[in-house]
Each structure stands twice: as C-alpha cells, then as structure tokens.
Simulated scan of single mutants.
Amino acid sequence: MTSTDPARPVRHPAAAAMALRRAESLQLKAADAITTFAGSMPFVYLHALAFGLWMTLVEGSPWPTLTLVVSLEAIFLSTFVLIGQNRQAEFQQAKADHDFIESELELKTNTELTRQIHRLTTELHRRVIPEGNH
C-alpha cells in the first residue's frame, strides 16, 4: 500500500471501510461523539463540578437522587463502552480477515514464483550441462 500524497497517511483497507461506514451512519457518529467525550478529562471535570454543585447548592439531601442519576448514567456509559468494544472487535476481525487473504495471495504468488524459478533453473542446468556430465 503506497500513497501518492505524502501528507496523506496510508490507511489499512479495513480501517478505511470502517471509517466510511461510521461516516455514513448517524448512530455510529453519535456513539463516536459520546464515547470520545465520555472518555475525556473534560467529561470528568464537568461531572465533578456538576455533582459538587448539586450536592452543595441544589438539594438538601442529594444522596438518593444523586445515587439514582449516577446509576442511570453508569448504565448508559457502560453500554457505550460495550458498543465501542464490539466495534473494535469487529474492526480487528475485518483487519485480520483482510490480512489473511493478502497473506494467502502472497504465499500463492511466492509459491508460483518458486516453481517457475525451479523450472527455469532446471532448464538452464539441462542446457548448460550436458546429460552425461553430472
């Protein structure tokens, strides 16, 4: 795989196909945006600030409501983690399948080249060295 544009990195075909599929799907774009934000430090800072303000300023007894909200958020975030893991596993499988096919094709090509080299070497040997001089 080579690229004619040095500024553009070469992408594995499985990665390119996955990126195209993600770009075409609104659900996958939303999941990407959520998991990108949920896996960032701004997400942590925002939650620390929001929960701190809630506990000190909004409710007199915040623990029951806060526990409910945090539990619901954990359910949704764990679902997004699983979605991300499933997509990563799907990508790894697609990449492995592509690499296997490419390896098999290369093995077949190398085997054929080796056979042709053997035939040519045998023919050259036959022509250069007469039958009785082995």
Rank of each mutant, 00 (worst) to 15 (best):
E90M: 06
R11W: 03
L77C: 09
P64F: 02
L53S: 07
W63M: 11
A17H: 01
E24K: 14
G39C: 04
G52W: 09
S40T: 00
T65C: 00
Q27K: 13
A30I: 12
A16I: 06
L82T: 00
A38C: 11
F51W: 14
I101A: 10
H47I: 00
V81A: 11
V44H: 08
A31W: 08
V58E: 03
H47L: 08
M41S: 09
L28G: 02
E73H: 13
L66H: 06
P62H: 03
G52V: 00
L72D: 04
A48K: 15
S40E: 01
L66W: 07
Q92W: 00
E90C: 01
T35P: 03
T35D: 13
L49G: 05
L20S: 11
T67Y: 07
M55K: 12
A23C: 03
M55Y: 15
F43S: 15
T67I: 09
L66G: 13
F43Q: 06
T65Y: 00
L26E: 13
M18D: 14
R11C: 07
V69Y: 02
F91Q: 13
A94M: 12
L53G: 12
L20M: 09
K95E: 14
K29F: 04
I83V: 15
L72M: 11
G52Q: 02
L46M: 12
L72W: 04
Y45N: 15
R11A: 14
A15C: 12
V44N: 02
W54E: 09
E59P: 01
K95G: 03
V81N: 05
A74G: 05
T67S: 13
L66C: 08
M41E: 10
M55E: 12
H47F: 08
A96I: 01
H12G: 06
E73Y: 10
V58K: 05
A48P: 01
S61D: 13
F100R: 15
G39P: 07
A30T: 09
T35Y: 12
P62Y: 04
S78H: 06
Q88M: 09
I34Y: 14
L53H: 12
L49N: 05
L26C: 04
I83S: 01
W54F: 14
L77P: 09
Q85M: 13
L57S: 09
D99P: 00
D97Y: 04
R87I: 01
D99A: 02
A38Q: 04
P13F: 05
S25M: 01
A30S: 03
G84A: 07
D97V: 04
G84R: 08
V58S: 09
Y45W: 11
P13Q: 05
F80N: 05
A15W: 04
D32Q: 12
L66P: 01
V81G: 11
P13V: 04
A16C: 04
G60P: 02
T36L: 11
S61A: 12
A89G: 06
D97W: 02
I34C: 10
